[in-house]
């Protein structure tokens, strides 16, 4: 079982390698067509033309494009993504610093999406055939059409500005210290025993995580509902009913388990999209994660940083998809036979 799982993971990761290579090459080419000169940008404005030429040679910019890519790839494989032009710091280091905050946000959002999605899906199914069904159906379609960008703004407006229940800027209240152990603020504040920081961080996380979670729950809701419909056509549901089980036990004990498999596959795909959705939510809530760093880098045309962050997003999404595929095999006995 474990051996099978391992081979599966390894095989999936290997098949992701060519995609990553092409993606990184594309990223590299798109950014090299830009009418900006990274060499001139990394020097003070009073640099002479000779100095800029020397810098171009030092950065390898006088080489042909494939060679430039090879130089960059060699560096990237050793964890060296070059220096950020605007921030004058190591690009890989900047990504490593902001990635935990983004992962923390994405994980909380996914938990919310799963709870709302599964609960809502069961509710939608439960309402089938009642007068409320068309209403619930319409509501789920309206919900489906609100993306995380709009949810972020709507929640900010209602709970932040109008009701003033929750903070909507940054990741802790200003003035509180930011303990640094693992980089995950919620965990770190508990590790150093600062419960006030932990509570503040939780309060700051509610709106951004909810905005993302709300945007992704309707899809899970609708897929769970339609796979429950499929499952209820199976003989074992009729058989369970003949055995005299209550409708509640049939739904939760028999149907839900089987209907959750297709839902999981979809949730995995959703989690990949959700992870990149953090970018917008971070910008709306000034949350100091990788998304905000990316937007700053894009505004400054900071090529090395854009490349590093762009690649990180792609790698994380590919890793999430691999993890979900493996989980699927663990949970679905039919796939274990080869």
């Amino acid at each position: 079982m474990i051996a099978l799982l391992l081979t599966l993971i390894v095989r999936r990761l290997l098949s992701a390698v060519p995609i990553l290579l092409i993606v990184s090459a594309l990223l590299f080419c798109v950014l090299r067509i830009l009418p900006v000169d990274p060499a001139a940008m990394s020097l003070p404005p009073n640099a002479t033309i000779e100095e800029i030429e020397a810098q171009r040679r030092a950065m390898g910019l006088d080489q042909p494009l494939p060679q430039q890519y090879a130089i960059w790839l060699r560096g990237a494989l050793h964890g060296d993504f070059g220096r950020s032009i605007a921030l004058r710091r190591d690009a890989g280091e900047l990504v490593a610093q902001t990635l935990p905050a983004t992962i923390q946000l994405a994980a909380c959002a996914m938990a919310i999406a799963a709870i709302l999605g599964l609960g809502g899906g069961l509710l939608l199914f439960h309402l089938r055939g009642t007068v409320l069904e068309p209403l619930a159906d319409l509501a789920s379609i309206v919900l489906l059409s609100i993306p995380e960008f709009l949810w972020g703004l709507i929640l900010l407006f209602v709970f932040g500005v109008l009701l003033q229940w929750l903070p909507f800027t940054g990741q802790v209240a200003p003035g509180l210290p930011l303990p640094h152990v693992t980089g995950f603020l919620l965990l770190d504040s508990l590790l150093v025993g600062r419960f006030d920081v932990f509570l503040s961080a939780c309060r700051h996380l509610v709106l951004p995580a909810l905005a993302l979670g709300l945007a992704f729950s309707p899809t899970i809701m609708r897929v769970l509902r339609s796979s429950l419909f499929d499952v209820y056509l199976e003989d074992y549901i009729v058989q369970a009913r003949l055995r005299g089980l209550s409708e509640g036990r049939i739904l939760l004990g028999h149907a839900f388990k089987n209907a959750s498999l297709p839902t999981l596959t979809l949730a995995g795909v959703q989690f990949g999209i959700l992870f990149s959705g953090t970018l917008l939510v971070e910008v709306i809530y000034s949350y100091p994660g990788m998304g905000n760093l990316m937007v700053d880098a894009v505004r400054n045309a900071d090529l090395p940083l854009i490349q590093a962050i762009g690649l990180t997003y792609c790698v994380v999404v590919l890793l999430i998809n691999t993890a979900v595929d493996s989980l699927y095999v663990v949970l679905n006995p039919k796939l274990r036979v080869r």
Binding site: L31, G272, I273, F275, S276, M294, G310, C314, V317
Partner: peptide, 9 residues
């Protein structure tokens, strides 16, 4: 490529 990232780039 996540769509948001690609459009920004």
């Amino acid at each position: 490529f996540p769509p948001v990232i690609l459009s920004l780039i």
